[in-house]
């Protein structure tokens, strides 16, 4: 399970970084989502395997650390808000510059 999780995190990171470096702005946005999911999984794995029962349970069994889960929840909400903002930016950019190639979006260079 440890190996599987670390592989999943690694693959998500690699794919995310690859996509975010692409010139196509939509692929870059997908890369952003992959990266934030990779880091969420990483945070989650920080406290994933310690307990046998959920944090709210009153059973005597050892409970998992609830803090990483709370952190991930917050991070998910923030990255969702950020992604919505990125999509709206992409909409404006695509109507204004008529392209999805980030190299063509260079108004600030002149």
């Amino acid at each position: 399970m440890n190996l599987l999780t670390s592989l999943a995190i690694g693959i998500l990171f690699a794919a995310g970084i690859y996509q975010i470096l692409r010139r196509n702005v939509i692929r870059a946005a997908v890369g952003l989502v992959l990266l934030s999911n990779a880091v969420n999984l990483f945070l989650f794995s920080a406290g994933a395997y310690n307990g046998q029962s959920a944090a709210y349970s009153t059973a005597a069994a050892q409970i998992s650390d609830p803090l990483p889960q709370a952190l991930v929840l917050t991070a998910i909400v923030i990255s969702m808000g950020g992604f919505a903002f990125v999509l709206s930016l992409l909409y404006v950019i695509s109507t204004r510059y008529k392209t999805s190639d980030s190299d063509e979006v260079k108004g600030l260079k002149n």
Binding site: A28, L32, V86, L89, L90, V92, I93, V105, L108
Partner: peptide, 9 residues
């Protein structure tokens, strides 16, 4: 918009 896009990434 362009500047915000850059910054946000």
């Amino acid at each position: 918009v362009e500047a915000a896009y850059k910054y946000f990434y």
